[in-house]
Design a protein around this nucleic acid. Structure first.
Lengths: 139, 139
DNA sequence: CTCTCTGCAAAGCATTTGCACATTG
DNA sequence: CAATGTGCAAATGCTTTGCAGAGAG
């Protein structure tokens, strides 16, 4: 997890820029929410031998660096997205589609609540669940 | 999932009130957030032979009825709680403790965002993550 | 007596990990 | 060359499920 240190105590480990990692980043590039398995399939188009394990390891590293965020709900497979700006999520309870939204004011409310409870280093995540316009139209 | 119907189309299946189900409800009675395994251990005190499978089946039914809610985060084990009043969650990123909080205004914001996106039957869940007072004090 | 529930054990799915080899810097 | 990354396959953890017998109404 943490970079190892030399005898002198200096951080030594650097992240290597491998083709697998580049491919994963590229797969997430267009703002979509993809599960590990889907990413695996996408990356296989250019690197037929990547293993799913590598996908998971890569996603984990990218998450540590802060380039990627994971979203999970109700025990289903996690969905990953590239980190751009702070946002919240709209989730359709019927088709499971996931969209990003901004929700002004939520962060302030969360900060106030957290402060009252003595929490530090606070972040918050709002998930709005409902039937999306498309599913509502179809029934 | 859905209650079966007779030839006449009337709902026939009724939920039975078994000792196992009562025990699970009682285990959740005091407002705690417990994972299935912990509930299993608790229920075993009075019913030594309950299976974990039954715990899961019971929790699922109670969730359908609306008596129980599940909370999951980052792929870890789900935690269950009895449903009282609408609330949000404070989660400690260090010790993983989970607390209920009220967050005035969040529901309105969520409703507005959802409406703009054409969502119907909307609900929302805010999770505030940070280091709790206790963990902050210890380091 | 019928239909539902349960225990058991096995299966399922998403994710993690150990190891020997390949690769990066 | 040294340290990190990868593929593979097995292991893990949580949850679900099939089945035959037990129990509720």
């Amino acid at each position: 997890m943490e970079p190892k240190t030399t005898d002198a105590g200096l951080p030594q480990a650097r992240y290597r820029l491998t083709k697998q990692r580049v491919a994963v980043l590229r797969a997430l590039g267009d703002g979509t929410h993809l599960c590990a398995d889907t990413i695996h399939q996408l990356v296989r188009h250019e690197l037929p031998d990547v293993s799913l394990g590598t996908i998971y390891r890569t996603l984990d590293i990218l998450r540590q660096i802060g380039l990627v965020q994971a979203f999970s709900h109700d025990g289903g497979a996690a969905r990953y997205e590239a980190t751009f700006e702070k946002h919240h999520h709209l989730l359709c309870s019927q088709c499971n589609a996931l969209t990003n939204v901004r929700a002004e004011g939520v962060a302030q409310i969360a900060a106030a609540v957290a402060e009252r409870a003595g929490f530090k280093d606070v972040d918050c995540a709002l998930t709005i669940v409902g039937r999306c316009a498309h599913c509502t139209a179809r029934g």
